[in-house]
Design a protein around this nucleic acid. Structure first.
Lengths: 208, 208
DNA sequence: ACGTGTGAATTATTTCACAGCT
DNA sequence: AGCTGTGAAATAATTCACACGT
């Protein structure tokens, strides 16, 4: 199988950003080349899995030599559509929403928070780069600013309503910080971040 | 296979808290009974998967009648060790750490933040229920307060060092908000929350 | 000699389908 | 009739192992 002929397993897609991150770190250390063995050591995974993952997309390595880091990074970034900025918005400007807005990690990786919405406008939230609007202005603003990704930080009971409006507004991906799994058309990507569920599953292993 | 004779797949453990959450919601709606079919509809999964998941732990249902919600909930909560409070601590009191400390969702589910640590003590952080200490006091405080879970919200370069100290201090589970995968002894549970990785993997599906 | 890319083998997970209880 | 619990079957994911290029 060569080049993406058919559906790549989602679990492979989820691992690609890990490879990108580690390759960036190697680059910072002035490495130019890496083997699947070495990358596997750094990522606590097997060389076979890394080679198999890459094989879904093409042949990026050289036998006997491993992978050229710059080349592999660029290929992976192209696959993941990381060679461009993505406009995002935050819905819900409470504690969590403000923490998300202030977090620099999104911007550093090319995810620009262009707008933030809430039911009513907060009095103080000084950020020149971000448009603050009410949820009733969502659809227009999202289209005008070419926003493709929504970050949902409203209270759980409001989430499905907000997400329905995001979908109507043309959003294509959702990062959902709400403790619920939204109902969505299947062409919309969504990842749920749910720290309580994480603690609860880890609790299984406690006192064992 | 009856009762947990051998290792339950982690993927099953990860789904159990979802069942607990949905059963709680049904209980709030005064339902007393539920079938795997109905639960599957609510959770957007298949009845077969739910029954198979439960079958790792015992027989909780009645043929022809489905599951008694109170009974099933209690069994699942016992399996997950949710019928007790767990003491936790936060390491790193920046934006994110403070958002975590202020979030009520942990407390509501029995995860009590008893202490917070940073390199130096912040001047203002008024919270009567939480002990604020420097990282040098970590080991003693964690042992004194019987803390079993650490929530890591320090900058990435500091994370491995902090996590090593948590392990030394006797912590058994880690919720890691840092964009790195820590090296850990395999008897320590760890879940990484990494919103940037999530956005990057969703970006694959954008512009498709 | 090193290390990729990949079919084949293995292992894990999901789904099927039905006997049997209520 | 309705619905669980579970072997068996089907599907998916990982790992093996090696031919072949550098």
């Amino acid at each position: 199988m060569n080049e993406q002929e058919h559906d790549i397993p989602e679990i492979v897609i989820i691992r690609l950003p890990l490879y990108v991150r580690t390759l960036n770190e190697l680059k910072l250390l002035n490495q130019t080349t890496v083997s699947s063995q070495h990358l596997g050591n750094l990522l606590q995974t097997t060389p076979a899995q890394i080679r198999k993952d890459f094989s879904h997309f093409g042949k990026f390595g050289k036998q006997g030599r491993g992978y050229n880091i710059d080349y592999l990074l660029d290929e992976l970034r192209k696959i993941l559509n990381l060679n461009q900025k993505w406009n995002t918005c935050v819905i819900g400007i409470g504690n969590l929403g403000q923490a998300v807005i202030n977090y620099q990690g999104f911007k550093n990786e090319g995810y620009l928070i262009k707008a933030a919405f809430d039911i009513s406008l907060p009095s103080r939230l000084d950020n020149k780069d971000i448009v603050i609007k009410t949820i009733s202005d969502m659809k227009n603003t999202i289209k005008e600013l070419n926003i493709k990704i929504g970050i949902v930080t409203v209270p759980a009971p409001d989430a499905q309503g907000v997400i329905d409006r995001l979908v109507e507004s043309g959003i294509k991906a959702i990062l959902n910080y709400t403790p619920m799994k939204p109902v969505l058309p299947k062409n919309i990507a969504c990842i749920n971040i749910d720290p309580v569920l994480s603690l609860q599953s880890m609790s299984y292993y406690l006192d064992k």
